[in-house]
Write a protein that binds this DNA or RNA. Sequence first.
DNA 1: CAATCATTTCTTGTATACAAAGTACAATCT
DNA 2: AGATTGTACTTTGTATACAAGAAATGATTG
Lengths: 232, 232
Amino acid sequence: MGDHFDMTMDEVLPLRDVVFNTLRKAILTGELKPGERLMEIHLANRLGVSRTPIREAIRKLELEGLVIMIPRRGAEVAQITEKSLKDVLEVRRALDALCAELACDRITAEEEEMLGKACDEFARATKTKDATVIAKADVAFHDIIVQATGNQRLIQLINNLSEQMYRYRFEYIKDENQHDSLIEEHRIIYESIVGRDKEKAAKTARLHIDNQEKSIIRQIRLEQNQAAAGKK
Amino acid sequence: MGDHFDMTMDEVLPLRDVVFNTLRKAILTGELKPGERLMEIHLANRLGVSRTPIREAIRKLELEGLVIMIPRRGAEVAQITEKSLKDVLEVRRALDALCAELACDRITAEEEEMLGKACDEFARATKTKDATVIAKADVAFHDIIVQATGNQRLIQLINNLSEQMYRYRFEYIKDENQHDSLIEEHRIIYESIVGRDKEKAAKTARLHIDNQEKSIIRQIRLEQNQAAAGKK
DNA sequence: CAATCATTTCTTGTATACAAAGTACAATCT
DNA sequence: AGATTGTACTTTGTATACAAGAAATGATTG
């Protein structure tokens, strides 16, 4: 019999993984701010564990690029600069296009149906004007495409890269002017994949990232200006 | 004034990083074989350190995909299957093409010159018939292109993906029949980048990976057959 | 003799202890 | 007063101790 209680799932997870997930979430939601130091004893007390799992979690965050290590000084939350985000998006543009192409070759009938539903679902979600609901529907749509590639390494990389811009996802999602074009782009991607038109699917996927980039960069500049003003 | 003594630099590296590099190298060179268990006390004794740095190094290897964790059983060296290698190469094909395109836009005059030299150097290296020399020259050539993108994230990803096939690099390098086409491809890539022909640079980069894939897959099948025969 | 269960041993998971490096602040000297 | 050194304190780096879960071994029973 399978497990009935998801709660108990956490208990079998090693503490280092619990800590890893907790810290990652805290960083991605902005609870832990860029530049903030991650002090081991402090975190250990806060999470009710010893330093060991904290340290092991930090090693993984380090490799994931969410924290940077300064020798003999410890870890701090990585700064997100406009440059680092452009770098991430440049890679994502290429990988999202790859996903779209691969999906044309490999998507199953079931996945096609799911993708169609996710497409409609996204359109419906925009009507709610609830950023959380819209973001979820957006992720669901793209997840189906990524999964359809069947390439585990690609799936892992996309997930990691998506993380890096998690904090800014809401900003472009909230921009209601863009909703119609987002819906339209999703629809084109869906139809291209079903129609096995790799060229069009990849092109639209790239365009989709371009639009996100514009929103996100705008948002970052805004924040930087606010920070600069606050300093004065 | 800058540091005069480079010797002391290594000594300040935390043990976890020394262990991480040591284990990674051991895995990539095949000294630690796929499926082999990484037992902490054993490794600690062997490397003359305690379990703590070993464990932290393993966490990073885990995220890098070089080892897999089995809960309550520890780490073992990840198996490289034909599928996992195809997955890696599929991503690399896209990213190498991206590198070539970006290099067209961003390469500096100095880098162009270095690339030309690296191109000649590779041709010369093939004459030596020494796989190590050829492999080094090959890496040097591609490194210049990757660096020319100026995209830190991309540089990091390519390095990680290259690692995954490090073990098989010698196989396609040793294949002397391919030397001429490798030289030719390098030359085309170089000229395309200098001539700012993104399309051609990207296309040739993809072709370059295709050729490597063929060699490597052939090698893997060979090994698998040998393993199967040995079992019988 | 086979199967099962207890026991022992090995290994990981977690906590803690100790050493060394770094930091901040205050006292001292020029 | 300003700079410098010394000292206390904080924090990381490393080692070790202890607990708990798996695996292997052996004994016991049908």
